[in-house]
Every structure is written in C-alpha cells, then in structure tokens.
Design a protein around this nucleic acid. Structure first.
Lengths: 149, 149
DNA sequence: GACATATTGAAAATCTTTTTCATTAAGTAT
DNA sequence: ATACTTAATGAAAAAGATTTTCAATATGTC
C-alpha cells in the first residue's frame, strides 16, 4: 500500500482498519477527511473540512466530504453536532460527547468534559419509559464570561 | 376588534397580549401561526405549520411563518428544537423544554417531563467555567420499547 | 499489469431559510 | 365609519446546505 501522506495518527489508523474490515476502499479522499477530523480539537462544518482536507487531497470535492461524513458517522467514528445557526458540525466521537456550553451572545461553543455519568438522571427515566438510553446530548445555553459584561 | 376565527385558547390570548404590549400588530397571519402552535402537542416544522395554519388564514405565505416563528422564539413563546434530519421543529415553550428521548430506529421523539432541576449538574460547571447557564437542552438517544425487539 | 467495480468530482437538483420589494391591512386619528 | 401611516405581508428571487445523477477514475484483486 502506497503511503499517501504522513499518517502517524493512530486514531486515523484505527478507523482505516475498521473501514477495511467492512470492505470499504481506503481512498485518498477518505484518508484526507479522516486526517482532518482526527487532528481537529473542535467540531468542523463540512465546508471547513473540505478546505482543510484539500491540503492532503487537492482534488477533493465537497460532495465526497459529505459522503465520507455520512459513512463515518454511520460507523460512529465521528458524530454530527447540532449548531445554533442551523447547520451541522462534525467531530470525532471522543470530542463530540454531547456536552456543550453555548453562548447566546458570541455563539462560541465550549466543550466541557468529565460529565459522563448521568445515570442518576437516566436510570429513573429508563424505568419510567421503557426506553433504552444509549447516548446523550447535553447543551447548556447562556452567557460566557466575556459576554456577561 | 373583529373576531377572525375561534380563539378560545388562553395560551393564544396570552401571547397576543404580549405582542400587543410590545407594539406588534395582531395580524391574521400571526394569529393563525400562533393558533397552530398552541393547539399542537408536538413540535412542527415550518412547512407543517404553514399547511395547518392555512386553515385559519388561507393566504398565509411560508415566509410569514418563518418570520412569525422568529418573532415568537425571540420572545421565548416558542422554542426551536433540533431534529435528527437536520431541519428544525418549533413547539410552544412548555412543550419544548429540551428534554427528549429519541429512538435511533423509528426516529420518534418523546418528551419527558419533570426534570427541570439539573442544578446538581449545572452549578459545578458554572463555578468551573464562569459560564452563566440560562437554559439547557437534554436529549437522550437510544431505543424505544417497540424497537428493542 | 489488467480487470471489475466501488468511489469520485462536477453539475444539477432539492430543500430549507433569508432577502428584497411592491402591495396590503392593522391601529390610530379624524 | 373614513382616511392615514407604516408595520406586516406574499411572491419571487437569492442564498446556503445537502443530495442525486452520471460519466470518469482509482482501488483492491486476480
């Protein structure tokens, strides 16, 4: 297999292996999108991913970005994140655990970590509704420190 | 004031009073959108609101639906709800408190009530981040009882 | 290295939402 | 009631995001 660009990122490798396992081809466009997603520390819109990924694959089309995002989120390697402005951002699953602080003034989105255990909240709901809860999305809306002035 | 259509709904009346108080005109198109939102028990997409509201105002344009939704959500009488499919739904604020159970199989959205107090969760976050939290959106993703089979 | 076909990029189509602008109608004064 | 002022409306066009179509390309395999 020809080495296309530097791909020392183990997160990228892991997803590539999974794609291969499922019979998908490991193409240059897919690698480029994956590379961008795995090296990013925040969530990106498809257009932004397109711009960045062309560093690795200059012929990359926006359509392929959409298709790759759809594929990857189907496999839960990336996750689609709702944004206030109505369009979507994508982030690798580790990042997109669904905990956000969103400022209603400057619209910045801050991730906040360390809140994986919502079982106190979720357990009673599962009992009452019969729903099997697999994941959660929690967004807190308000004012960031800078916009409170 | 001429009675345009049956408007015994006190929720509608309350919002109309608020619109009036702020100097907005109580137009037939606005009444029709409001009527639909306040009689609905789930969240509706703008297109769906348009269809239903034309029962009350046959000349109603979709553009006005969008404008009215924007006005009403600015006043927090209705709230925009993110949907899996990428577009938005709107529901009166009581309904749209941001607590949803979403089934990944049949995509039904179930509201669950009675969870207004997330202060145990929110207080420490406010302390750590300096963020002022005004509202929250909590979505639980999983499988509804019917789709677990 | 050649082959079968999954994948791609470009263009066009779709769908949601916003903007523009001439027309209409709500609220107020007459 | 009638006239007046201007906020609000509807239609068309524009703008944006996303999907579909399809001929060309490149991957993994033989």
């Amino acid at each position: 297999m020809k080495k296309i660009f530097n791909m020392s990122n183990p997160k990228v490798e892991r997803v590539l292996a999974d794609l291969k396992r499922l019979g998908y081809r490991l193409t240059r466009p897919r690698r480029s999108v994956l590379q961008v997603l795995m090296e990013a520390d925040d969530c990106l819109r498809p257009e932004e991913i397109h711009v960045r990924a062309r560093r690795y694959c200059p012929t990359l089309g926006l359509v392929t970005v959409y298709r790759t995002l759809s594929l990857l989120s189907g496999m839960d390697h990336v996750r689609r994140v709702h944004r206030e402005d109505g369009c979507h951002g994508y982030a690798r699953t580790e990042l997109a655990h669904g905990h956000h602080l969103i400022c209603r003034d400057c619209h910045q989105v801050i991730e906040f970590p360390g809140l994986d255990d919502l079982s106190l909240l979720i357990d009673p709901i599962e009992r009452e509704t019969g729903f099997l809860v697999e994941d959660h999305l929690l967004e807190l809306l308000g004012l960031c420190p800078a916009c409170q002035g």
